[in-house]
Deep mutational scan, measured.
Amino acid sequence: EPIEAIAKFDYVGRSARELSFKKGASLLLYHRASEDWWEGRHNGIDGLVPHQYIVVQD
């Protein structure tokens, strides 16, 4: 079951695997890939989301 998150800041992906998004964007998170990253989805694209840039919705 994906988790919803909201972007705290704009983020520009630094590689093809990283998602880019704007502050306030809604993201879906699948699972924690590491301490710093989530596997997630934004605008229909799957990729990595940096933990420091999002607020996970409970």
Results as ranks from 00 to 15, higher is better:
W37T: 04
I54H: 02
N43V: 05
Q52W: 08
E18K: 05
S34Q: 10
R32E: 05
S34A: 07
L27D: 00
A33N: 09
S15P: 04
I6E: 10
P50E: 03
E4A: 10
Y30V: 12
R32M: 06
W37D: 02
A5M: 02
G44F: 07
I6L: 08
D10C: 06
L29A: 02
E39R: 08
L27I: 12
G44R: 07
A5R: 02
K22I: 04
A7T: 02
R17D: 04
G24Q: 06
A25Q: 13
E4M: 13
R32N: 03
V12L: 12
Y30M: 10
L48V: 08
K8G: 08
E1H: 03
K22D: 12
H51I: 05
N43P: 01
Q52F: 11
G44K: 15
I6Y: 11
W37E: 03
K23N: 05
G24I: 01
E35Y: 05
V49H: 01
L19E: 01
Y30Q: 09
S34C: 09
Y11A: 02
H31Y: 12
L19S: 02
I3W: 05
I6T: 13
F21V: 03
W38M: 02
A25S: 14
L29G: 01
S34W: 03
R14Q: 07
A25T: 13
D58H: 04
K23L: 06
A5H: 02
E18H: 06
G44A: 12
Y30F: 11
P2D: 15
I54K: 01
L29W: 00
D10P: 08
G44T: 09
K23G: 08
R17F: 04
V49Q: 00
E18S: 08
G24N: 15
W38C: 01
E39G: 04
E35K: 15
L48R: 13
H31A: 14
I54G: 02
H51W: 05
V12N: 12
K22E: 14
P2R: 15
Q52K: 10
L28K: 14
Q52A: 12
R17L: 09
K23Y: 05
P2F: 15
I6N: 05
S15C: 06
E39T: 09
E1D: 11
R41S: 12
K23C: 03
F21S: 01
G13Q: 15
A7E: 00
R14V: 10
L28M: 13
L48Y: 10
V55L: 10
V49W: 00
W37L: 09
E1I: 15
A5S: 08
F21Y: 02
G24D: 09
R41C: 14
G40P: 01
R14G: 12
W38I: 01
L27Y: 00
A33Q: 13
E35T: 05
F9R: 14
K8E: 09
K22W: 07
V49L: 10
L28E: 09
F21C: 01
H42Q: 12
S15F: 08
S15T: 14
S20V: 03
Y53L: 13
F9L: 09
E39I: 03
I54R: 00
S26M: 13
G13L: 02
G24R: 05
I45P: 02
D58T: 04
P2I: 12
F9M: 14
A16I: 05
D10W: 02
